[in-house]
Structures are given as structure tokens and as C-alpha cells.
Design a protein around this nucleic acid. Structure first.
Lengths: 216, 216
DNA sequence: GAGAACAATATTGTTGACAATGTAGTCCGT
DNA sequence: ACGGACTACATTGTCAACAATATTGTTCTC
């Protein structure tokens, strides 16, 4: 396995650089608006500049970095206003996914959703916001997957990536898990009841609540 | 202005190649699933292979071409099923835009929408499907712009680009303009009435009709 | 004659060097 | 001392050559 150890040069250099950079940005290792110099990153990651360059283009398409011609790249900072606009898009798209999931998920999948809902309730009861946030993310992901809407899933993943910083902020807000738990359970219930319209309503209600919380 | 004349070499080679290739694909100059060889394109466009390569990566991110590692690029063919999934995403996103436009458009902008509606009615009465299709596209574009939802606009432009071929197919279908005219006018009316909820309803109803038509 | 291994070709992936561009610091004139 | 132009540096954009990989045509064996 010459991959995990030192994939530095030759093989899929660009993919490697892309993954490393994306992780670094998503984990917040890089200060917001920090300048990204291609040469520095190349040396740091042990790949050539061309690979870094390609990765940066890809990240620009994903909305994670900003590029100005002949001026360089920075990690993109998402203002609260933008976060709201993005979440409004999420609202309608997740509504669509919830409705489709209610129609076309298998019984096994519905059981998994119910299980996730119970786990979330337990996490709130035990006062574990980190676990809750994990489960939250997982629930949304599963619902999307069960909808079978590949296009919507792609769009949502891209949108979500841009929101990591704000998501973090929300998760640690005291009282927030208690409020969102009910909304999440409503989503699970309506989907398992195979009621598309109610599921869409529930998803939109939840995201509306997220928007309100984003605005503080 | 050394740009319009012969941008072939040196300056913004990649941007130039990108634009040319995108236009070529959108205009249907390239057969579906046609193989895109980097060298050929480079010579054809008068730029280097690296520029073509960069442009192809960008087009992949936009969903217009498909790339397989070490195997090359093809113009992506969108199956009817995919077109339906994409249009479902359009449905909810345009619903959002219509609602926002109803809230935040200026009176001047509303007047422009009314004008477009009248022009569309005239085009149908005169039996000019091409003009109608143009106006159709323009109406949707304007509504998006007036919504002020930059994120949604970007997503929609990307989605629409993938549908050009199917859009064409629909526009030339006899009887289709007559059916969609009413739906479009309903959108204009509800938006100018500044009724967000009704506007969203109208937009979704229209796109639902488009989905039905796509399925033949 | 059919199938499989092999070699030749075509195409993409990668690299290092070079050119273009923007930025900042400095020098000169007033 | 202050403003403007000019030079030097840093950084990105572009290019042409090289290496890796998949495909196709050929030959050899059964």
C-alpha cells in the first residue's frame, strides 16, 4: 500500500492534494480569508504546483475558496447573509428529498431513520451536543440518500460544505438541540408514515427554524 | 482591444477555450457522446493543450462533459430520467425564487415581467414557437434575477445548462406553447400581485407540467 | 480458425521552466 | 515632506516536453 504512506509524487497527486486541502479547510485548520499561495501549499503537501493548482480550481467550483485572476486564492468566508441564502436553498431541496424519501424508501431504510431519531433523543437527554450534532448530520445525509435524487444530493453536499463553520456555531448554542430535536422527530415520523406532503412540510419547517437561529 | 479579434494565444487562453467549448456544446455543434480529444481541440481552438485541459475540468464541474481517468472526455448525455430529476430540483428552486421575487422585486421589475407575459401571449397567437422559447427562457431568467437569491441563481444556471437538448425538444413540440402559456401567465400574475405563496405554487405547477411533458 | 498474450499506438497525466501580471518599496522632483 | 513614477519582487498563468496508461492490431499457439 504505497498510498497512505507517501502518495506525494506521481500517482494521483491532484486527488491527494484536493482531499488534504478540503479537509484542512473544513476542519478549520486554515484561518478564514487566509491567503493560499500555490508554491507554499505544494511544498507543504509534497506535490507539484500544478496539482495544487488543479485542486484549487476544483475547490473554487465547490465554493470553498475564492480566486481572483493573477491575485491568488483565499479560503472563502461565508457571511451570515450568504449562509441564510444557502440554507434557503437547502430548505427547498431537502423538502424535495424528504418527500421523495417518503415515497420510495424501503422499509429497512425507514427503520434506520427511526433508530436515528431515538438515538438523537437519547443524546439530547444525556446532554451530549457533539453526539447530537453527529447524528443530526447523519440523519440529513440518510434522508437525502434514501430519496434517490442524485442531482439534489450533489447540490446539497456542495451547499453543506460551505456551511461547516456556521453549523459548528449553531451546534454549540445552548438550548438549540432541544429545539431542533422535535423538528427532526417530526421529519422521521412523517417520512416513516409515507406522507410526502407532510414530510416536505416538516423538512421545510426545520430548515426555517435553522435560518431563524442563524440570524441569532 | 486585442481581445475580440484574436484571443487565441497568450492572454486568457483558458477562459477563451472554456467559452468556446461551452458554446459549442450548448449549441449542439458536437454530437452527443462525441469523444473530445485534447490535442484535436487544442489545434482547432488555437490554444495549447493545457488550456483545453483546464477548460474540460471546468466543464466537468458544470456537468456538461464526462471524464474518465486515462480514458478521455465525452460530452455528457442527459437521459430523460436524469432530466426529470434535474427538473424536480429546478421546480423547488424556481419556486423559492418566485416567492422571493414576489416579495422583493421593484415595481419597475414587475412591469417588465408583465411586458414579457404579454409578448409571450403574442408569440403564441402569432404561432412563433422559437420567439416564444426565447421569451420563456428570458422570463425564467428575469424572475431568478429579481429574487436576489445569488446562490439559487447559480445552481439554476448550472442545472439549466444541462438541459439544453431537452429544452429544444420540448419547445418544438406542437401544442406545448399553448399549454405552458397559461402557466407562465399565472406566474407573472401571482408575482406582480406580490403573493409569495401563490407565486411558489404557480412556479411549481409549471415545472410539474414540464416534467410531465418531458416524460412524453 | 479461434483465443490469448504481446507489441505498437494513441491519449491522457505530470513535471519543470518560462512569460505575464500585479504589488510594494524606493527614488526623484517639486 | 509629499506625490508620482519607476524598478524589483512575488505570484499566478502558460507552455512544451516527458512519463504513465489504456486501446487496438498482430502474431503465435492450440
Amino acid at each position: 500500500m504505497p498510498d497512505q504512506a507517501r502518495p506525494g509524487t506521481g500517482e494521483q497527486a491532484k486527488q491527494h492534494a484536493l482531499e488534504r486541502l478540503r479537509q484542512a479547510i473544513l476542519r478549520g485548520d486554515m484561518a478564514p480569508a487566509q491567503r493560499l499561495v500555490e508554491n507554499e501549499l505544494a511544498e507543504q503537501l509534497g506535490v507539484t504546483r500544478a496539482s495544487v493548482r488543479g485542486a484549487l480550481f476544483e475547490l473554487e467550483a465547490e465554493g470553498l475558496v475564492e480566486r481572483i485572476r493573477n491575485r491568488g486564492s483565499r479560503v472563502r468566508v461565508v457571511t451570515v447573509e450568504e449562509a441564510v441564502a444557502i440554507t434557503e436553498c437547502r430548505m427547498v431541496l431537502e423538502g424535495l428529498c424528504a418527500a421523495k424519501a417518503a415515497e420510495s424508501a424501503t422499509d429497512d431504510q425507514l427503520a434506520e431513520l427511526t433508530g436515528l431519531g431515538e438515538a438523537m433523543a437519547k443524546a439530547v437527554a444525556d446532554g451530549e451536543p457533539v453526539t447530537y450534532s453527529e447524528l443530526n448530520h447523519q440523519l440529513h445525509t440518510r434522508i437525502r440518500q434514501f430519496s434517490g435524487q442524485r442531482t439534489a444530493v450533489e447540490l446539497l453536499e456542495k451547499l453543506n460544505a460551505q456551511l461547516v463553520r456556521h453549523r459548528f456555531r449553531l451546534a454549540l448554542r445552548p438550548g438549540r438541540p432541544q429545539q431542533s430535536l422535535g423538528e427532526h422527530l417530526a421529519m422521521v415520523e412523517t417520512i416513516t408514515a409515507r406522507d410526502p406532503q407532510a414530510a416536505e412540510e416538516a423538512a421545510r419547517a426545520h430548515l426555517t427554524s435553522v435560518i431563524a437561529a442563524l440570524r441569532e
